[in-house]
Design a protein around this nucleic acid. Structure first.
Lengths: 120, 120
DNA sequence: GTTTCATTTCAATACCCATTGAATCAATGC
DNA sequence: GCATTGATTCAATGGGTATTGAAATGAAAC
């Protein structure tokens, strides 16, 4: 992961509501959640939520797919792990064995039965 | 680590120059580096750098101590690890064994011979 | 085909951030 | 003491961010 990508991901997570959104999506796993459900759980206005989803998506932390009239958002574990890797990159001055690289993954890694391919 | 602390740490790291500063301090290890050295290496104006150090310090990611007329800044690995722990907290839906918690530590954990106790 | 539901777009607002230059403070050397 | 060096403070500037309300889109149901 490039430094610019790391800054983007960090900035995306460095906001109360967005951190809540992302953590909720991580808990939800690869299936993701419809925007409305997230809005309901976190008590956020739908337009505000769209704004935050956009930032998470631009940072590569989230994917969207349409299901009927719902937009379903899901966490991108791949990006999150790349970020964790980047953050631990400079530890232990090269003695990588002494440093535990972090891993973030869903409990059940089953494939989503998406109506369309997730976008970004 | 509380959510508010995590947001503060993420915000502190979510900026190009500050991320550079922090990574440089991580590489430098517990001994830390004088502000002037950091300014020189990263080519930052001293007042700008003070601004960024303040934000890192408020986020608990950095400590300062005075040595003569130099101010010596050092990374706080403890906070960084708490942040990494927080970020991986919601992975694997409780199956913590499947998730590798991250660790960030200096290669040599020798004690600093500080003139004064480091401040926050 | 119009109504309904889920979500997005747009414009406006208030607030926070990063950088700069000038001035100040603290410690050292002469 | 006085000048020098290292770092901080202060005020000002431009740019970005989060939230809100009103309006618009897109897909489904009747």
């Amino acid at each position: 992961m490039e430094k610019a990508d790391a800054v983007a991901a960090l900035a995306a997570l460095a906001q109360d509501n967005r951190l809540d959104v992302f953590r909720l999506l991580v808990q939800a796993g690869p299936e993701g959640l419809p925007a409305g459900k997230v809005a309901e759980v976190l008590e956020l206005a739908p337009n505000t939520l769209t704004f935050h989803f956009d930032r998470l998506r631009q940072a590569g932390l989230v994917t969207v797919r349409r299901d009927g009239r719902s937009m379903i958002y899901a966490a991108r574990f791949e990006t999150m792990n790349a970020l964790l890797g980047f953050l631990t990159e400079n530890c232990c001055q090269g003695d990588t064995a002494a440093c535990a690289p972090a891993a973030c993954k869903p409990a059940v890694a089953k494939r989503t039965k998406s109506t369309k391919e997730p976008v970004r």
